[in-house]
């Protein structure tokens, strides 16, 4: 499974940890800045043998959540969680992941090719042992500050680049729609957060699953088969089978990561 990238913050004293686990200590609420990681993505090889170089990957999402694993072990922590995060008893199967004890509400555009990190805001997290992060997909709108002719408007994601195999190169452009409200659940996010600690959380989209599985964002897409006119230009649009494959992959937590720095 996933490689574990452990960053432990602020484990300054055992008495503090004991206090977190005791029933008479109300967990502290900590503000942590959240950024989106830019800087581009390295070339990767798909399961079909295409070497892909992405030039664009933008995703519209919102309402980040940060989760601790398993059951909370102190009633006060649960009470504090309810105060922080709107309680929503989920329909069975319509909720997965740990207990949500941190959040950053709002609407964001994640641009993997932004020149550097882009500030998203300040999340509020209860102290605890974090193991995952969630967010909600949405459609981009003019309220995101996009130009009126931005092709991302009204859609969830744009992906563009070139795919090469056996001497043939295909320029592709994919427009992706994911139903608003669809959650990405369980991005790796490991942080032992204690009162007084500070950190910046960096959300990143990954072209390749960092585990040994090595799945790529474009596995299952045969670009040659999508080029019947032989012009080596491939457009992938909502409703296409390839679109359904890519949008499904983009929802998988293997392709998201929250780094702690």
């Amino acid at each position: 499974m996933m490689k574990t990238m452990v960053r432990v913050l602020g484990l300054t004293a055992l008495p503090l940890l004991a206090a977190v686990c005791s029933s008479d200590h109300e967990p502290a609420t900590l503000p942590l800045p959240v950024v989106a990681r830019g800087g581009g993505l390295s070339a990767f090889v798909t399961a079909e043998g295409y070497t892909v170089e992405l030039a664009e990957l933008r995703v519209a999402l919102g309402d980040l959540q940060f989760t601790v694993g398993g059951e909370t072990h102190a009633g006060l922590l649960r009470d504090a969680r309810r105060a922080l995060v709107r309680e929503a008893f989920a329909h069975p199967g319509h909720y997965a992941g740990g207990e949500v004890t941190g959040q950053l509400a709002g609407a964001f555009i994640i641009d993997a090719f932004a020149p550097g990190e882009v500030a998203l805001g300040t999340a509020t997290l209860l102290e605890g042992d974090y193991h995952g992060a969630n967010f909600t997909f949405r459609a981009a709108s003019t309220e995101d500050g996009l130009a009126a002719d931005d092709p991302l408007l009204g859609h969830t994601a744009l992906m563009a680049g070139t795919a090469s195999r056996a001497g043939a190169a295909y320029t592709f452009h994919a427009v992706l729609d994911i139903d608003a409200g669809t959650q990405m659940v369980g991005a790796p996010f490991t942080l032992a957060l204690r009162a007084g600690a500070g950190a910046t959380l960096a959300l990143a989209v990954l072209a390749v699953d960092p585990s040994t599985e090595g799945d790529s964002l474009l596995d299952g897409v045969d670009f040659a088969a999508l080029d019947p006119d032989g012009n080596h230009v491939v457009e992938i649009l909502p409703g296409d089978a390839a679109h359904n494959i890519i949008r499904r992959t983009l929802q998988v937590h293997d392709h998201w990561w929250v780094d702690v720095r």
């Binding site: 997965a96 669809t182 990405m184 659940v185 369980g186 799945d215 390839a242 359904n244 998988v252 293997d254």
Partner: peptide, 13 residues
Amino acid sequence: IRTLPNYGTGSTG
């Protein structure tokens, strides 16, 4: 089921 427009599987893979 990967090419289907429905049968959403969220983040499960």
